[in-house]
């Protein structure tokens, strides 16, 4: 759906930053969890008139062990692989109940899922929901492995990373495949809005959420979510990593607005990936050759993204 139309939305700046946290403190996320922080930012941007569907995973576990909930908005957890379908049902019900005047307004509908729930087990359900055109936002909180079950690799785990099922050894480098690009897969559905975001750039993240909620139809945002537990990084460095991933081009920030690609990060001259990799023990087994390979490929992918963005400049 290529269109020159600009998305109209209420912009968030440092001055009017929403303060109301819709996830309460007292949640059980690990120290320095970048995932819950990202989710909290999404919710601040969305506001209280929101219904959340949450996939099984860290965020579901840490926010809802009975009898305590961290949620201050209506929230539904059903299973692991089906959050996009659950959100489809919520959306269809909201549309119909509104049409029949059984409800007075249409709330935002947001599905949260981890990278395993998105890139692996839930990919079909996500694709179905995007293709059907439901008016909802799907947020993939990407911490690059199955952290909730004990750091197993997913198809979103980056090349070279050590996980409990991609261990480095004499015959393996660790994760031997390149990270699946689900944002591009989402974009291939020709939905109104796709973006990547990082909690290191909170205004960018929150405004992308605002845009995603402003469009009529499906939106997909993949958010880089540092995980000190799974990445063997220091809890205090989660935001450092969230910024470095962007600045090195490991996790570039872009958006696809009505089919138009746009790089949204300020850093166009990339920092060396080594600066990012060396802060995480999941990469510590990598040699200089491995890092050089990653560097080369990150650079090549960033160039491709720039080329895509230039098409619509």
């Amino acid at each position: 759906m290529l269109s020159k139309e600009e998305i109209k939305f209420e912009k968030i700046t440092a001055k009017n930053l929403p303060r109301e946290s819709l996830i309460s403190p007292g949640h059980r996320a690990c120290q320095g969890c970048g995932e819950i922080l990202a989710m909290g930012m999404v919710m601040k941007a969305a506001g209280p008139n929101t219904i959340v569907a949450n996939a099984t995973g860290c965020m579901e576990i840490v926010t809802s062990p009975f009898p305590e909930t961290a949620w201050r908005v209506p929230w539904l957890h059903v299973a692991f692989e089906n959050t996009a379908a659950v959100a489809s049902g919520i959306e269809a019900a909201i549309q119909m109940l509104y049409k029949k005047q059984k409800i007075k307004e249409k709330p935002n509908i947001i599905a949260f899922a981890g990278d395993g729930a998105t890139a692996d087990i839930g990919l079909q359900s996500l694709s179905g929901a995007l293709e059907r055109g439901h008016n909802f936002l799907y947020v993939c909180l990407d911490n690059e492995a199955y952290m909730n079950t004990g750091i197993q690799r997913s198809s979103s785990t980056p090349y070279g990373a050590m996980t409990t099922t991609s261990p480095p050894g004499k015959k393996s480098i660790g994760q031997c495949t390149w990270k699946k690009n689900v944002a591009m897969i989402a974009a291939a559905h020709n939905i109104p809005y796709v973006a990547t975001a990082s909690p290191g750039y909170h205004l960018d993240l929150m405004n992308k959420v605002r845009k995603a909620l402003a469009v009529d139809g499906p939106a997909y945002i993949q958010i880089f979510s540092p995980c000190p537990t799974g990445w063997r990084s220091k809890p205090e460095q989660s935001i450092t990593l969230a910024k470095l991933a962007v600045q090195t081009g490991v996790f570039p920030l872009f958006e696809v607005e009505y089919g138009r690609f746009k790089i949204t990060q300020k850093t166009k001259e990339l920092k060396p990936v080594k600066e990012y990799l060396q802060l995480q023990r999941r990469f510590r087994h990598l040699g200089e050759d491995d890092i050089a390979y990653i560097q080369e490929r990150v650079k090549a992918e960033f160039e491709r993204l720039k080329a895509l963005a230039s098409l619509d400049a």
Binding site: N82, A85, V86, S88, S125
Partner: peptide
């Protein structure tokens, strides 16, 4: 929907919304 798994999942989402 694109599968029965999603059929039931969407049904759950819709029923939970009051439909």
């Amino acid at each position: 929907v694109e599968s029965e798994h999603s059929a039931m999942s969407a049904a759950v989402g819709a029923a939970a919304t009051g439909a």
